[in-house]
Design a protein around this nucleic acid. Sequence first.
DNA 1: CCAAAAGTGTTGCTTGTACACCCATGT
DNA 2: ACATGGGTGTACAAGCAACACTTTTGG
Lengths: 237, 237
Amino acid sequence: MEGEKAISLLAELYKQYPKHYVAVDCSIFGYEDGELKLLLYPRGFEPAQGKWSLMGGFVQENESMEEAARRVLLQTTGLKDIFLEQATAFSKPDRDPGARVISMTFVALIRIDIHDKDLVRESGAHWWPVTKLPALIFDHSEIVTNGLALLQQKASIDLIGKELLPDMFTLMQLRNLYEAIFQKTFDPGNFRKKVLSLDILERLSVKNTKESKKGAFYYKFKSGDYGLRSERIVKFP
Amino acid sequence: MEGEKAISLLAELYKQYPKHYVAVDCSIFGYEDGELKLLLYPRGFEPAQGKWSLMGGFVQENESMEEAARRVLLQTTGLKDIFLEQATAFSKPDRDPGARVISMTFVALIRIDIHDKDLVRESGAHWWPVTKLPALIFDHSEIVTNGLALLQQKASIDLIGKELLPDMFTLMQLRNLYEAIFQKTFDPGNFRKKVLSLDILERLSVKNTKESKKGAFYYKFKSGDYGLRSERIVKFP
DNA sequence: CCAAAAGTGTTGCTTGTACACCCATGT
DNA sequence: ACATGGGTGTACAAGCAACACTTTTGG
């Protein structure tokens, strides 16, 4: 066929161009003990031994970059179907001392309460509060800063929480999450009114009586995919 | 040295992973005759002959992806120092029939009035109104849709115009640009007040008397890089 | 009782929006 | 004279921020 011949000519044309290693690196955020945390892996060998790194991996022949990221996340946390969003690519020729590696970075949001803790522990990984991060290899600090900014931007447009909190949560827990993300305090009353006005939370009949004397109702996200069908834009400063 | 040995071991470690062709594709937007336009190149050979494509190129060994995009833009428009922003990467293994090519996409904004028209004409390129785009090769339509969404988002946060309009412009011209970007009309009075309240435009003493009977003052963007130092967030619409 | 969080209400300010209105002038 | 865009003002609604206030209950 003509078509096939054309395609093989195209393949021939491409041969003059260089190929590159392509990696994915994930900023994996979780929320625990009132803090926003980042999952990091210790580097056991030189160069940069003793520093920490984001979880990453190389893109294989038969997978897209997002598939590569999901594969890596499944291997390291045991979780499927996690929130994953493409962030910024880093491609300076000398960013990795081992070879020229182009890295596509992703932001992943994990519910710490349901991930595979044993799997994480085995690998020596550790959840670090984003306010006290250790030294990271290569340009990974820059990647994290970039991912955090993306997370903040996302949180200011959508109401996130489904991805980071347990199924049931109190409005104080949700507010504390937002305070951890934005590193600022929100007025409890105003936060409550704003969030409830969005009409995407459902109040349950159960109360949490541990974190307050009076007891606070649990809420959950309404079922039926909001965020896709809703045009609502939430503006948190 | 120990360090060098470690680095070569790292390089050895990477050898088990596949390499990929990495390309950049640019959605080049311009503004002319009251319309938002996109610069497209005709495809002269099979497969997909007769369709149009974005301008792109392969990433070389010694350049970052952004540098590759700037190189391509210089070659095709003759312009340096143009506005360029990383958009979304496309990496489905079969997106290009010739070979597995990973494409990083960019949005570029061009001032049509100062680009090298001869260079563009030679290549057979054509500025298409974004409202009437032809069929594009591969997944380029998806790339354009994505780039347009990014442009809209950017225009709703920053005041763009410096990148698309002549040095001097009237507020009507700026409004028409925004109407072209968002495909909706803005109230002239309200648009004027909103834009001027940002305090980033400077009124000149010259008037444009061609487009209105009364004559409208020209404005320009104040010098001193706003957009970097300003925390202002403009919300259009 | 008191501290601490839950939950509701009030008030003032800022912002967006829909207009009305006068101005200047080329045709 | 009149249509067209330039430019300013006004009136109303919506949203947000600051903060007062009541409720509940474990210690």
